[in-house]
């Protein structure tokens, strides 16, 4: 089963490598990992998407906690998390009916056009993974020239704390 783990770490060189080598050394999977500074520059926030049974996830969170540079580990279950992914897509489309159809579909998925060229189009899509996957399915016939996709970023919802 898929699990999302949010990890607060000290913003120091080598921390990402410690986490990556923990996963590889113990045979845990990383489906995606995103990392960036938080509002406190000495702390970075990571969102790790992984999968495994309950015992494995328990080991992963314990092992992460054991790392000296890890400050906090929270497993975000689906009911308490707010999660987003982003994808940038480049299409090779000339002006014409095909382009109009593409723009309409992009609108349906609340995408944004970042660059509109004579022969190409760069689009940004943001949303839950399911939405991104659905959009990619629908957009596949439109000759996607290039694509860059982030992993998941996630936060715990506040309302669930009560």
């Amino acid at each position: 089963m898929k699990h999302v783990i949010s990890v607060m770490v000290e913003n120091e060189f080598g921390v990402l490598s410690r986490i990556a080598s923990l996963f590889s050394g113990r045979g845990f999977n990383i489906e995606s990992l995103t990392v960036a500074e938080t509002e406190d520059k000495s702390i970075s926030s990571m969102t790790i998407v992984t999968h495994g049974d309950e015992n494995i996830i328990e080991q992963i969170t314990k092992q992460l906690n054991k790392l000296i540079n890890v400050i906090k580990v929270v497993e975000l279950t689906e009911s308490v998390q707010m999660a987003r992914e982003m994808v940038l897509l480049k299409f090779a489309v000339n002006s014409g009916p095909k382009r109009l159809e593409l723009l309409r579909l992009i609108e349906v998925y609340q995408g944004r056009v970042l660059e509109l060229g004579v022969r190409s189009l760069i689009v940004e899509l943001t949303g839950e993974r399911a939405k991104i996957e659905a959009a990619l399915d629908v957009l596949a016939p439109f000759a996607i020239k290039d694509m860059s996709r982030t992993g998941m970023v996630a936060l715990a919802r506040d309302s669930q704390k009560n």
């Binding site: 060189f13 080598g14 490598s17 410690r18 080598s21 050394g25 000296i68």
Partner: peptide, 12 residues
């Protein structure tokens, strides 16, 4: 880098 997995922690 080499000793990361065989130390409790390490520093440069």
């Amino acid at each position: 880098g080499i000793t990361r997995p065989c130390t409790k922690h390490n520093f440069l």
